[in-house]
Amino acid sequence: MTFRPLRPPFRPTALLLGLLFLLATAAHAAPPAPKQTVVLVHGATAGAWEWKRTGQFLTDDGHAVYRATLTGLGEREHLNSAAIDLQTHIDDVVNLILFEDLHDVVLTGHSYGGMVVTGVMDRIPERIRHVVFLDAAVPQDGQSIWDLFGSRGPLPADRFRDGFMQVPWVKPGDKPPYSVKQSIKCFEQPVSYRNPAALALPVTYVAFVPKDQKIEERARTDKSWQNADARGWTMRTFPGGHVAQQEDPRGVATLIEASVNDRNRAVGAAAASAKAAGTAAE
């Protein structure tokens, strides 16, 4: 008589529960963040080099990144001229977007770059999805950056001469990348910001706030902060100095990604109507 070893009865319960768990997890998993087209615009005397590491983090996250270098600055220093003005730099970024045929652009501007992206918004709002002002100038229509910061008057000879704002901390023989002198006309020329489609774009304003500065003090004294807030833009802060993108490039990249879904608040008459409606409902 042949004896066969007894096999344990098949119990599919554990296997089925595991499969059901995996299916449920997949069904409820958050979809991957959409990939964006990001255009980074640097500040005065700088260049695209200043945004290399932040741009690389954005690229690593799957976004298409374009780091603009404004005429006469950065690796385009050989084109430097006292005739360059704000409009030249606005044209630089507008043409980058048009010639690369970019749409739904997440447009960012840092410092003086806020003047540039304001002009770009006014020119081609139909190409832009969201704008992020990173510790940047926020001018009113018809203002220059000197109007915004109240810098009219005699210019210090050690910083402004021969039609340029000088960069005294860069010495002969320094190796690139480095900051370069910039035409004074960039700071004198007013910007246009009146296109209704530009005024309706969703915008995030980010103040880079050092550890030794109080946010309340910054809000009280910063005209760019006040202009942004008055427009109903999303207001954010980020810990760091004026070049926080070099101090914490990963953090700034993540900040840009998080800002894309920000939406403007209602302001003016619309805000008053909404407040009144809310009061009546109560």
Rank of each mutant, 00 (worst) to 15 (best):
F3E: 14
F3C: 10
L6Q: 14
P9G: 12
R11A: 13
T13R: 11
L17P: 04
L20K: 01
L23D: 11
L23W: 12
A27S: 13
V39W: 00
T45D: 02
W51M: 13
L58C: 02
G74W: 03
N80S: 14
A82L: 08
L86S: 00
I90Q: 03
D91G: 09
D92A: 05
N95F: 04
L96Y: 07
L98Q: 15
H110L: 04
S111Y: 00
V117D: 01
V117K: 00
T118L: 01
G119D: 02
P125N: 11
R127G: 05
V132N: 06
F133M: 07
D135I: 05
P139S: 09
Q140N: 15
G150E: 07
D158A: 12
V167G: 04
W169P: 00
V170F: 00
D174P: 03
D174Q: 10
D174S: 12
V180S: 10
K181W: 12
I184E: 13
S192W: 08
A200M: 07
A200D: 12
L201M: 14
P202G: 08
K211I: 08
R218H: 13
A219W: 00
R220M: 07
D222T: 01
A228C: 05
F238D: 02
Q245E: 10
G251K: 06
E257D: 12
R263M: 14
S273I: 15
